[in-house]
Design a protein around this nucleic acid. Structure first.
Length: 800
RNA sequence: GGGCUAUUAGGCUAGUGGCAAACCGAUUCCUUUACACGGAAUAUUCACCAGUUCGAUUCUGGUAUGGCCCACCA
C-alpha cells in the first residue's frame, strides 16, 4: 500500500530531518503521492490574481468525460504542462481546468450509469441528472490529471454543460444573431439518419466501403439510355439527367425526356458541365439528394426536388415505403434485375462520408437549420490564422487548407435532445423570431412560453439544441468568466496559448477563431501548440484493436515523472511511438538524479551558502558550461521546444555533471583540499540549476530533492515557484572541452589495457595540450590518478 | 488528384552547410568513500538521382516508399 502523508507531516519531516533526506533508494510511488498532497495543501498552483506582472494564460483543452485518461492525454497534457511550468517560473500563469461533458459520449455515459434514456426525459431533468452524476464521477476522472502532475489550478474549473457554460453559449448565440451572423434556412443539409440530426462539415469522416456500380437502362424515345449509379435506391428521387455539352454521343437527345426505370416517370435531359464524359456512360442522374453536387445542380437548374427519404433513413416512396436505405437498395436492385433494367454491374470500392460520432453514411435532407455565416469571411479567417504563432509552423497549413476548402456555413443546430437549447421562439403566423432575454439565461425555450411581439399570439419554442462546438468555441470567454479580475490580473483575449491535438484543428481551433473574431474582433490566442498522437508499433491505439497502453499502469510501474520524461521525447506536432525503453530511461534518470543529489548533499557539510572569494578555474568552467545549457533551455522552452530542453539537460547532467565534473572534484572534496569551498559553491548552485531546468518535465522528484535540502536556504516554498535560472554573459573558452578530451584519451588507454579507471599512471602531455589547461593540471592529476604529469613530444600514458 | 510531413546504426529517435549522435540492444573490460538501476570502450549508419557549393546527411529540384489532412464519390 502507498503510504499517505499529508502536507503537515511533510513539513514536520522536513523540519525535523537534520541530515539530508536524499539517501537510500528513490521510491517514486511514495514520493509522488506525498508531493502531490503537498502541492494541493499549499495551493502551489493557485492562480494569484493579485500578483503583478504579465500573465501567461492557457486555454486548457477540456477532456471528454467518459472513461479514464488515456495515454494520448497523458502525453499531450504533460507536454503543455512543461511549457506552463516553465512560464510559472518566469512569472504568473493562468491555467484553468475543465471537462467536456456536453456531448454524445457523456450523454451515453450518464444514460448507462443511471439506466435511463435521455429522449424519454424532460431535457431540463436530464441536464440536472447529468450535473448530479458528473459531480459524483468527475473527481475520480480528474485524479489522473493530478497524479500526472498537471499543474492546473483545479479550483478554476468548468464543465461544458454547467449553468455558466450554457448561459455563455446561449449568450453567444444571441449576440451573433443580433449581429446578423446567424440565419435559419431550409436547405439540403448533411444528415445522419442514425443520430437523426443534421451535422456540420467538420464532423465528417471518410470510410472506404465496397459498393455495386450498376449500369441501368433508362428509356428515351423508346431507345435505351444507359446510366451508371451506385445509388439505385434514389431512383425515385431522380429529377433530371445530365450530359456534358461537348459530348457528341448525346447531342441529339438534349431537351428530350428520359424515362426512369421501375418508376416510369419522365425527367428532362439537360446539358451540364458537371457530367464527366469519361465516367460511367457519360450520363449523370441527378437525385434529390445523392450528394452536395445534386443539391447545387437542382438549385442551378431550378428543378423541384423529390424527397424520398425520411429523417430516420427510410424511404417514403411506394412500393418501397418504410424500407431502410440498405434494404431498399437491395430490393430495388432485385426488381431492376428481374425487369431487365440492369445492363452491367461491377463491384467497386469507394469512399463515402460518414458521421464521425457513429460511422453512419451521411445523407442529404432538406431541413430547417441554424447557420453561422462563415463562407463570406474566408479571407478574414486566413488573416486571423496568420496573426497566430503556430507550433510547429507547418500546422498553420492545415488550418489554411481547411478554411480554403470550406463549402458550407457552420450548421450549429442539432436535432438532439441533450445539449444547450437554442434560446429562441418563432411565431408560426408571421415567422418573427423572438430571442430570450439575457437575464433569463440559461433557458430551455420548450419550458417557457413567449408571445409574438407583433401578433400577440403564443410563439413556438425552438426544440433544437446547439452543436457542442458552439460551447467549446468560447472556452476563453468561459474560463475568463470564472475569476474575478483585478487591475493586476486581467485575463484578456488573446490568451497566450491554446494547446491541442491536430485532429480538432478544423473544429475546436477553427470555431474558436470564428467566435473570437465575431465577438471580440481579436484572435483568441497568440500561440497555438499542436501535439501529435501516441501510437504503438506505428499504429493508432484503439480499444477494438486491443493495443491500448494504460497511463495508470505506466505510472504505477515507472512513475509519473518517467511517463512525463517519455512524453518530453516526443517532438511537437509529430506522432510518437510508445516505447517502453523510454520509460526505462526515465526511471534510470530518476535514480541517477537521486544518487547524484545524495552525493552532492553528503559533501556540502560545512557549506555556508556564501560565494567564496576564490573560485577555482575548473568550477568556473563548469558553471560557464552550465550557463550555456541554461541559455539553450530557456530559448527552447520559449519556442515550445521542450524536447530539445530535455535532451540537452539530460545530456549535460549525465555526461558533464556526473561522468566528468563530479569525478573531477571528488578528490578535492574527499581530501578537504584548498578548493573545497569553491567546489561546494559550484555543486550547490550547479545542482540547483540542473534541478530547475528539468523541473518542468519531472516535477515530483525535483520537488522532493528541493524540499529535502534547498528549501531551507532558498526563498521559495516550492521549486515550481522559484525563479528560472538567468543567463550570464560570459566569454567562450574551450578549456573544459580540451580537459575532457584528454581525460577521454586517458580512459581509453586504461580501458584498452583492461585496467581499472583508478589505476595509477604517469601522464605525458604535449606542450600545446599542457598550455591550454595550465590552470587545471592539479584537477587532471586527481581525476586521472596520475602520479605525475610531464611534458613530451606526444601524448602518452604509462602505468606504474 | 491536391497539400503537409517523413525516410539517419539491429530497434527507436536527435541533429547539423565542414570529424555523424543520444537511448535500448550486442560485444570487451572495469568495482567497492553517489550510483552495477554504475563506469570505460568497441562495432554498425544519413532512401535514390541530379543541381547549387571549395565542401551537402543538412539547401534546391526530381524519383521511390510510408504517414496525416483535404478532395473525389454518377
Amino acid at each position: 500500500m502507498v503510504e499517505q502523508y499529508n502536507a503537515r507531516q511533510v513539513e514536520e519531516k522536513i523540519k525535523t530531518s537534520e541530515k539530508p533526506k536524499v539517501s537510500g533508494t528513490y521510491n517514486p510511488k511514495e514520493t509522488e503521492t506525498r508531493i502531490k498532497s503537498f502541492w494541493e495543501k499549499e495551493k502551489i498552483y493557485r492562480f494569484d490574481s493579485k500578483k503583478k506582472g504579465k500573465i501567461y494564460s492557457i486555454d486548457t483543452p477540456p477532456p471528454t468525460l467518459s472513461g479514464k485518461m488515456h495515454i494520448g492525454h497523458a502525453y499531450s497534457y504533460s507536454q503543455q504542462d512543461f511549457i506552463v511550468r516553465f512560464h510559472r517560473m518566469n512569472g504568473n500563469v493562468f491555467y484553468p481546468f475543465g471537462t467536456d461533458d456536453n456531448g454524445l459520449p457523456t450523454e451515453r455515459l450518464v444514460e448507462k450509469l443511471n439506466n435511463v434514456k435521455s429522449k424519454t426525459m424532460k431535457r431540463e431533468d436530464f441536464i440536472k441528472m447529468c450535473l448530479k452524476t458528473l459531480k459524483e464521477i468527475t473527481p475520480d476522472f480528474i485524479a489522473d490529471w493530478k497524479n500526472l502532475g498537471v499543474s492546473c489550478d483545479y479550483d478554476i474549473y468548468y464543465s461544458t454543460i454547467d449553468n455558466n457554460s450554457r448561459k455563455l453559449a446561449q449568450k453567444s448565440f444571441i449576440e451573433l444573431y443580433k449581429k446578423g451572423l446567424i440565419y435559419k434556412k431550409g436547405f439540403p443539409t448533411l444528415w445522419c439518419p442514425d443520430c437523426q440530426t443534421s451535422v456540420a462539415q467538420a464532423e465528417l469522416d471518410d470510410k472506404e466501403l465496397p459498393s455495386l456500380f450498376s449500369t441501368l437502362r433508362f428509356k428515351c424515345n423508346d431507345k435505351d439510355l444507359l446510366i451508371a449509379t451506385t445509388r439505385p435506391e434514389l431512383l425515385g428521387a431522380c429529377v433530371a439527367v445530365f450530359v456534358n455539352p461537348s459530348d457528341k454521343r448525346y447531342k441529339n437527345i438534349v431537351g428530350k425526356k428520359a424515362k426512369v426505370p421501375l418508376f416510369n416517370f419522365e425527367v428532362p435531359i439537360i446539358e451540364d458541365e458537371s457530367a464527366d464524359i469519361e465516367k460511367g456512360t457519360g450520363v449523370l442522374m441527378i437525385c434529390s439528394y445523392g450528394d452536395k453536387y445534386d443539391a447545387e445542380a437542382i438549385n442551378r437548374h431550378k428543378l423541384s426536388p423529390k424527397i424520398v427519404l425520411n429523417y430516420n433513413g427510410s424511404l417514403n416512396i411506394e412500393p418501397y415505403s418504410g424500407l431502410k436505405l440498405k434494404d431498399a437498395r437491395k430490393k430495388i436492385l432485385e426488381d431492376l434485375k428481374n425487369n431487365g433494367f440492369i445492363v452491367e454491374q461491377k463491384q467497386i470500392s469507394h469512399n463515402v462520408n460518414t458521421h464521425d460520432k457513429c460511422g453512419t453514411e451521411i445523407e442529404f435532407l432538406p431541413t430547417k437549420q441554424w447557420f453561422i455565416k462563415i463562407l463570406d469571411k474566408k479571407k478574414k479567417f486566413l488573416e486571423q490564422g496568420n496573426k497566430i504563432k503556430w507550433h510547429p509552423e507547418f500546422m498553420h497549413k492545415r488550418y489554411d487548407n481547411w478554411v480554403n476548402g470550406l463549402e458550407w456555413d457552420w450548421n450549429i443546430s442539432r436535432d438532439r435532445h441533450f445539449g444547450v437549447p437554442i434560446p429562441v421562439w418563432e411565431c408560426e403566423k408571421c415567422k418573427e423570431i423572438i430571442v430570450a432575454d439575457e437575464k433569463e439565461l440559461p433557458i430551455d425555450p420548450t419550458e417557457h412560453k413567449k408571445k409574438c411581439t407583433k401578433c400577440k399570439i403564443e410563439a413556438k419554442a425552438e426544440g433544437k439544441v446547439l452543436d457542442t462546438w458552439m460551447t467549446s468555441s468560447i472556452s476563453p470567454q468561459i474560463v475568463s468568466s470564472l475569476v474575478k479580475t483585478s487591475e493586476n490580473s486581467k485575463i484578456e483575449i488573446p490568451f497566450s496559448l491554446r494547446p491541442q491535438a491536430h485532429d480538432i484543428i478544423r473544429t475546436w481551433l477553427f470555431y474558436t477563431v470564428v467566435k473570437s473574431l465575431y465577438q471580440e474582433n481579436e484572435i483568441p490566442w497568440n500561440n497555438v501548440f499542436i501535439s501529435g498522437f501516441v501510437t504503438l508499433g506505428g499504429e493508432k491505439m484503439s480499444k477494438s484493436k486491443g493495443n491500448v497502453i494504460s497511463p495508470q499502469e505506466v505510472m504505477e510501474k515507472y512513475s509519473a515523472d518517467a511517463l512525463r520524461f517519455a512524453a518530453a521525447g516526443a517532438k511537437l506536432g509529430e506522432d510518437s511511438d510508445y516505447q517502453e525503453k523510454d520509460l526505462v530511461t526515465g526511471k534510470k534518470f530518476e535514480t541517477k538524479l537521486w544518487n547524484a543529489s545524495n552525493f552532492v548533499f553528503m559533501n556540502l557539510t560545512g557549506y555556508d551558502g556564501k560565494k567564496p572569494k576564490k573560485i577555482e578555474r575548473i568550477d568556473e568552467l563548469f558553471l560557464m558550461k552550465l550557463n550555456e545549457l541554461v541559455k539553450t533551455c530557456t530559448e527552447s522552452f520559449e519556442n515550445y521546444e521542450y524536447s530539445r530542453a530535455k535532451i540537452e539537460t539530460e545530456k549535460f547532467f549525465w555526461q558533464i555533471f556526473c561522468d566528468n565534473y563530479l569525478e573531477i572534484v571528488k578528490k578535492r572534496i574527499y581530501e578537504n583540499k584548498a578548493g573545497e569551498k569553491s567546489s561546494q559553491y559550484a555543486l550547490y548552485n550547479g545542482l540547483l540549476t540542473i534541478l530547475k531546468l528539468i523541473a518542468p518535465i519531472m516535477p515530483f522528484i525535483t520537488e522532493e530533492i528541493y524540499q529535502s535540502y534547498y528549501s531551507k536556504n532558498e526563498a521559495y516554498k516550492s521549486i515550481h515557484l522559484s525563479r528560472w535560472p538567468t543567463v550570464e554573459k560570459v566569454d567562450k573558452t574551450d578549456e573544459l572541452d580540451v580537459f575532457i578530451n584528454i581525460l577521454t584519451k586517458v580512459r581509453y588507454e586504461k580501458s584498452k589495457a583492461q585496467k581499472s579507471m583508478k589505476a595509477e599512471v604517469k601522464l605525458v602531455l604535449t606542450k600545446e595540450e599542457k598550455s591550454k589547461i595550465v590552470d587545471l593540471l592539479e584537477d587532471l592529476k586527481d581525476v586521472c590518478c596520475a602520479r605525475e604529469i610531464n611534458e613530451g613530444k606526444e601524448f602518452g600514458v604509462e602505468f606504474v
